[in-house]
Amino acid sequence: MECNFGLNYGTQGDNLPTPDKGLNPLRQVVWRLRLFSPDRAILNYLNSSDSGIVVLSIGTFNEEIEKIAVDQNYANSWVQQNIVPFSEIIFSHIVVGNEVIPGPIGNFVIQAMINMEKAIKECTTHDIYVTTTVSMNVLGTSYPPSAGAFGEDSMTVMRGVVHFLQTRGYPLFLNVYPYFAYANNPAEIRLDYALFNTTDIVVQDGDLQYRNLFYAMVDSVIWAVEKAEGPNVEIVVSETGWPSAGNGDITTVEHARMYVNNLITTQMKSGTPKRPQHAMKTHIFAMYNENLKPEGVERNFGIYHPDLSEVYHVDWPKWTGRCNLENM
């Protein structure tokens, strides 16, 4: 499982280090990296022999989705510009959009994924998975986890997305934030349950027992995906984290450190109660505190300050050599 952890590399800051300096401390601890959109400086560095990063997920801009969906040439050009020149990078996933379902842009996601898949096959020899990223907002029901189901406003699109992923063996990317669930409902959600900091069984759902909110949230989406005829669709956690400032006593450095380290420790032991044997790939959000994001918690999800000092320490599991790439 040690090869299943990675980081989101956000770039919304005017004081961030160059990629060679920023990625160097992570050479032996972070195996996966996620870029929200193509960034030439980062891609050029990752394409060098010195980066140490093994696999990369790369996203499209949300405003590109409609163009990709209606114009195969645009999809081909996207791959030619952002994938083909970087032959030393192992691209694991192209992520068509971030949290656009439900919504008007979401209606273009399925065709955009189809066109992107065609572009990969036409323009490269790479085996790259195509997916999209969703948030918990695609659910109409999430509690208890076994009741998880897509909402009316997302059901039609998500059934199409799930069918695409199921028939091709591609995963669904999911952003999971127990912090926001707790912050929005502290009267009914226990803080220790959100922070992986209890051994109590907090939720009993049939035969399944939940000791942390993260696994309950993920399993609710797995149930929804299975009900949409996607029994074999893998869930990849594309974002999760806890802010270290911005919302009083809820957002402290200690809480952020506790959340991320407990997450890693928990996932090193097993998968979710619904899929206990499944080693879930997880990307921590985020590498840096980004000062161009909206004020408040959004600026404070970083593990590192822009000067590369730690906001808090993460006990990354060490890996040596190249991990097995058969299941990217």
Rank of each mutant, 00 (worst) to 15 (best):
K281R: 14
L16A: 03
M280K: 06
E254Y: 05
G59E: 02
T198Y: 01
L56T: 14
D71W: 02
P85N: 11
E152M: 08
P145Q: 09
S57C: 14
N73K: 14
E310H: 09
H283C: 10
H278K: 12
M1Y: 04
V95A: 14
V79A: 11
D14A: 08
I42C: 04
R27Y: 04
P19T: 02
I90K: 12
T252G: 02
A286M: 14
E226Y: 12
K274S: 11
D127W: 00
I101R: 02
G206V: 13
D192R: 03
R322K: 06
G302I: 01
N15S: 06
Y9T: 06
V253D: 01
V236K: 07
T60R: 13
L35D: 07
I42V: 14
I303C: 00
S48N: 10
Y259L: 04
R27E: 05
T131R: 07
V96Q: 00
N15G: 02
A228W: 11
P231I: 03
G151T: 05
I250E: 11
Y129T: 11
E63S: 15
N4W: 01
S142C: 08
L16W: 05
M1L: 09
V237E: 12
R322G: 00
N261S: 05
S238E: 09
D207P: 00
P145L: 13
T11A: 08
Y9Q: 05
S135I: 02
A149K: 15
R27T: 07
D205S: 06
F61N: 14
G241Y: 09
V157K: 04
V253R: 15
Y45I: 04
D14P: 01
V29S: 12
F173A: 15
A187E: 14
A181H: 10
E2P: 09
N137D: 11
L139N: 04
Q111F: 03
S146L: 11
S49M: 05
